Simulated assay, not measured.
Amino acid sequence: MKVLYFAWLRERLNRAEEEIAPPAEVVTSADLLHWLAAQDEGFALAMNGKPAQFKVSLDARIRPLDAPIAGTAVVAILPPMTGG
């Protein structure tokens, strides 16, 4: 599966995308965020223990964090936005 990183998350991780193969126990979007954090200290620091602040798109549709990821080709992770 391909993971796309957006906005300040892309800049902080110094990559826009990557191919991953999460293990079978990674079932939901939330599981995926936690698994990514366990694999990458930079991602863990960016998530700051608050996965609910991120939006996850599964094959171009924003889905809740409890949505299953089975069969998903592209996951986009959108960090919280700030603005003025």
Score class of each variant (00 low, 15 high):
21 A>K: 12
43 F>Y: 00
33 L>N: 01
27 V>D: 14
25 E>W: 13
64 P>I: 12
56 V>I: 10
38 A>C: 09
13 L>V: 01
52 A>V: 05
66 D>N: 10
73 A>R: 13
84 G>F: 07
47 M>F: 04
55 K>E: 15
65 L>P: 00
31 D>H: 07
41 E>Q: 08
39 Q>P: 09
78 L>I: 11
42 G>P: 00
53 Q>A: 07
45 L>Y: 12
16 A>K: 14
74 V>K: 12
61 R>A: 15
73 A>Q: 15
59 D>A: 15
78 L>N: 11
58 L>K: 05
40 D>E: 02
72 T>Y: 15
83 G>C: 09
64 P>K: 11
10 R>E: 08
41 E>P: 01
24 A>L: 15
29 S>I: 01
36 L>A: 01
13 L>D: 00
46 A>W: 05
42 G>W: 07
52 A>L: 04
19 E>L: 12
62 I>F: 08
59 D>T: 10
57 S>V: 10
30 A>E: 13
28 T>V: 13
25 E>C: 06
69 I>F: 08
33 L>W: 00
64 P>W: 08
20 I>G: 08
28 T>R: 10
3 V>R: 00
67 A>S: 14
24 A>H: 14
75 V>R: 02
74 V>Y: 14
57 S>M: 13
83 G>Q: 06
55 K>N: 09
19 E>Y: 13
34 H>R: 14
65 L>S: 01
64 P>H: 09
32 L>R: 02
60 A>R: 14
21 A>P: 02
33 L>C: 06
70 A>P: 07
23 P>G: 13
58 L>F: 01
62 I>K: 06
1 M>P: 09
57 S>Y: 14
84 G>R: 04
21 A>C: 10
67 A>Y: 02
40 D>L: 00
56 V>F: 13
31 D>I: 05
40 D>M: 02
44 A>T: 06
71 G>A: 11
48 N>L: 07
30 A>L: 13
49 G>Q: 03
21 A>N: 14
51 P>G: 01
56 V>T: 03
4 L>H: 11
22 P>N: 06
50 K>G: 04
45 L>T: 11
62 I>H: 07
57 S>K: 12
6 F>G: 02
74 V>S: 12
51 P>H: 04
25 E>S: 12
7 A>G: 02
